[in-house]
Amino acid sequence: MASSEKVKLYLASWFQLGKKLVFDNGQEISLAHSIIKGDRFSDEFEACWQKVIAQGGTNCHLEGTETNLDALLSPAWDIFACARCNMPIPRLELGVQTVNCPCVDMPQWPNLELPLPRAPINSNSRLANINNRLMSKNATF
């Protein structure tokens, strides 16, 4: 089952490549231009995510896909890395799947010369972990 955090990261990753979120059968299209702000998601992205949660993911899907987010939040689906581009994609846990990666309509992707989209990073936490590992290595010498 795809957790809500996995689905949120799935959206954030594709938003960073310019994919949009389609609501209500195309009646509304949303794209947060600012996705990451320091060590957290931007307020603009969080507002979009809260709209998804308020609707329960019903009638909204990522541009270029057909699977609604309410389905992705169900136990039948999970989020995995695409074998072609390493981006997060939804995949059925069991059964036959006909869903393509959202990158299928992006002729310039994957572009391995550019960094992949990412999640927010807490630099202080990461540096503290590195420091702790170094300190434990020094203690063994």
Rank of each mutant, 00 (worst) to 15 (best):
I29Q: 15
D43Y: 13
S74G: 07
E66W: 10
R84Y: 12
V7I: 06
A47P: 10
T98K: 15
F45W: 06
L134G: 01
K20W: 14
N124H: 12
T58Q: 15
E5C: 06
I35R: 04
F80R: 10
R91P: 04
K37H: 11
D43T: 12
T58E: 12
C48Q: 14
H61G: 10
P120N: 04
G38K: 09
I89C: 10
E44I: 11
P102W: 08
I89R: 09
M106R: 05
N124T: 07
K137R: 05
G18Y: 04
N86Q: 14
K6E: 12
D39L: 03
P107Y: 01
N129K: 08
F23P: 07
P117N: 00
I89T: 00
V7Q: 00
N86W: 12
D43V: 12
A83N: 14
W109M: 02
K37I: 00
P102Q: 03
F141A: 11
L73Q: 01
A71G: 05
C103I: 02
A2F: 03
V96M: 15
F23D: 08
I130H: 00
Q97R: 13
K6T: 02
G64L: 11
E28G: 14
L21W: 10
G56W: 11
S4Y: 07
A81W: 04
K37T: 14
T58I: 15
I53D: 04
C60V: 04
K19P: 03
V96N: 13
D105C: 12
G18N: 09
D78Y: 11
E28C: 14
S30L: 13
P117M: 05
V104M: 09
L112R: 10
L134W: 08
I53H: 01
P88Y: 05
L11F: 10
M135G: 04
I29N: 13
K20C: 13
N68R: 15
I35Y: 04
T65K: 09
R91C: 09
E28M: 14
E93V: 15
S136I: 09
G18A: 03
D43N: 07
S125E: 05
L114R: 00
C60Q: 10
I89G: 06
W49A: 07
L72D: 01
H61T: 12
G56L: 09
F41M: 08
S4K: 14
P75D: 08
V7D: 02
I121C: 02
L73W: 03
W49V: 02
P115G: 03
P88T: 05
M135V: 02
K19W: 03
K8G: 03
S74R: 01
S42R: 09
L127H: 01
D24M: 14
I36T: 01
V7F: 00
L94M: 11
A128L: 05
E93H: 15
N59C: 13
A76I: 13
W14G: 04
G18P: 08
S3L: 02
E93G: 15
E46H: 09
I130P: 07
R40Y: 03
T67L: 08
K137A: 02
L127R: 06
E113I: 06
P117W: 00
S34R: 13
M1T: 15
N138W: 10
F141R: 11
Q50K: 13
N100D: 11
N132D: 05
S74K: 04
N138I: 05
L62N: 06
Q108H: 08
L114S: 07
L9W: 14
V104Y: 10
C101F: 07
Q16K: 06
W77D: 06
D24N: 14
L11K: 07
C82W: 03
R133T: 01
E113M: 02
C101I: 06
